[in-house]
Design a protein around this nucleic acid. Structure first.
Lengths: 344, 344
DNA sequence: CTGAAAGCGCTTACAG
DNA sequence: CTGAAAGCGCTTACAG
């Protein structure tokens, strides 16, 4: 019967290599780390011994003693590593880190604040050099101690709450405003908003942007209506069917990817896709293949990831400037659904 | 002027907690690890001291000495953390690992064998307990030593080459065969194949499956034609435009997501989407919103990730059974494009 | 139940 | 240029 956990087979250590090469352990350390002050013949012997034993240095042991104590590891907490936005951020962070010899430990929070705290703690206990967090919770007081202890911290998508830290966010309000302003150029006089829970900062900002545009257009009261709290495509679809069954609004604005998917499903189901102008926040894969093509206000996840990583590495490198909030512009992708002209 | 790398501020250690609580360091260790044999008043004092100092245990230091020497970390090497297939695998692996208190270090290989070797080595030097690899290269001899040293190894998507290790793959050949068999039920007598480089094992298997189905249908020579080496949607689009401009085949089979996207673009561009039956290998987001809906042979990335993680943890736990190859069934998703009946 | 000593694999600081 | 000693933060193995 096997044990639940079995000890690893012995891996050769510097000690073993030193013994085989007939040198001191410090000489092996020098060769492994490419120190220039080792006699060529010793370098040869150490290399040969290391190869023969299949020696590989233990980087975690090395960083334990090494001055600075850096692990060359960062943590990345995302909403879900498998969603398109999160994973595009992830890739950009990985690329930036890789160029600097740093590895990424990632985790999915699924909008669960408890998970955020647990995973943050776990990553800190592994002594990551820094942490990029797409927050699930609203209260980040638990991170104050960590920040003081010198863990670099950068937030994305949402600002931390009673904490000052670098943050990289999309221009949610401005983007939504521009999207809806674009939508109103179709001649629409009434427009429906479909979005997630208003308690979510991103949803709130986008709704504010929606209202900004409606006000700026000088449309009267009753020109807009809104459905909030839509968490899944199915819920969004149901909400859209409901809204479209009543006093149908001229145009539709959807505040995030899943919601857009559901609303588009509803439109296609009713055969209204060529008559009701629609712009969605967040770009969608295949958006260009739909008929009409889907006009979206796209975020720039790769840019967000790159900027966040850049800030994080600056902090890790000792930057002590005041925390900054970086707002990343969104980008209108015109494909047809947002440009359906209403003949009036 | 700041240094490039600045030492972290001092973090309290067990020593500091022990001094403040007026106990031995081993007692702190016991409290931190929840050992049952500590007097309640000492537990209180240690807890209070730890909280006051903001103490957090250093897990990497702990695992250095701990018997077994496990780091409770695994490595996951994917084609690209941001592509839908890779990231769905990633999420499944994360979930399995999380339940077991294990963190995931991931990396993107971008089909670069050199990167595969480099990243593998880096992860091993960090002493991950195991490694799940979606291989970029074809020669995995460099891993033999590591496998012997006791690093658990599982491959996904493709078998390792001169190495015996657990592998989890999709039923590429069978899936392609079933997809094309389904496609031929439309009454199509000629069918075109669009795919990636035949040197890629997955592409080769899918092409073989395509040929299996064509042969089984008893269609004569010249019933099929094939375009290989399509690496991007744009290339696939161009290839499809070219093929469709000539002696147009009745039906189309595309061997992976990017290729499907390009070919669908071409069909829509020519207005042929309702006349040319199409089935694509790999499911696509929004496939159901296209007109006609896109019929696909979907892989099960979450299932692949779960099985790979399960195998890996079994190996880490001491399983010494012979390496196995697990073939995961694909699943036909009928949405319309593959069911266009040709009136003959 | 508690703690001083030794050690995990490596690097630092220091002699020679 | 080389290496023995001390130490990184913790756990193991062992006394008391």
């Amino acid at each position: 019967v096997e044990l639940d956990t079995v000890p690893r087979r012995h891996r050769p250590t510097m000690r073993d290599v030193a013994a085989l090469a007939g040198v001191g352990i410090k000489t092996v350390s020098r060769v492994v780390n490419g120190a220039p002050t080792v006699a060529p013949d010793l370098v040869q012997r150490v290399r040969a011994a290391a190869d023969e034993l299949g020696y590989r240095p233990n980087l975690t042991a090395a960083s334990l003693r090494r001055s600075g104590g850096r692990t060359h590891t960062i943590g990345l907490l995302l909403e879900d590593v498998s969603n398109p936005f999160s994973s595009a951020v992830h890739r950009a962070v990985e690329d930036y880190a890789r160029e600097r010899g740093v590895l990424v430990l990632s985790g999915s929070l699924d909008a669960d604040p408890q998970r955020e705290r647990d995973l943050t703690r776990t990553l800190i206990d592994r002594r990551v050099d820094g942490l990029i967090v797409m927050p699930a919770g609203r209260d980040h007081r638990y991170l104050v101690v960590e920040q003081q202890a010198g863990t670099a911290l950068v937030f994305i998508d949402r600002e931390p709450c009673p904490l000052l830290a670098d943050t990289v966010v999309s221009d949610n309000r401005g983007g939504a405003r521009r999207a809806v302003a674009h939508l109103l150029r179709t001649g629409s006089r009434t427009v429906a908003y479909f979005g997630d829970d208003l308690a979510l900062p991103t949803a709130r900002q986008r709704f504010l942007g929606f209202q900004d545009a409606v006000s700026a257009a000088g449309l009267g009261r009753g020109a807009s209506r809104a459905r909030h709290g839509l968490r899944t495509a199915a819920q969004a679809r149901a909400a859209a069917l409901d809204v479209l069954a009543g006093d149908r609004p001229d145009a539709l604005f959807t505040s995030r990817d899943l919601v857009t998917t559901g609303v588009v499903e509803a439109l296609h189901g009713l055969g209204l896709q060529h008559r009701a102008p629609l712009v969605g926040f967040d770009d969608l894969p295949l958006a260009g293949l739909l008929r009409p093509g889907l006009t979206t206000m796209a975020q720039r996840p790769a840019e967000i990831g790159r900027l966040a990583a850049q800030r994080l590495f600056a902090r890790i490198g000792g930057d002590r400037s005041p925390p900054s909030v970086h707002v990343v512009a969104t980008r209108l992708v015109v494909r047809g659904s947002g440009e359906i002209l209403l003949g009036r």
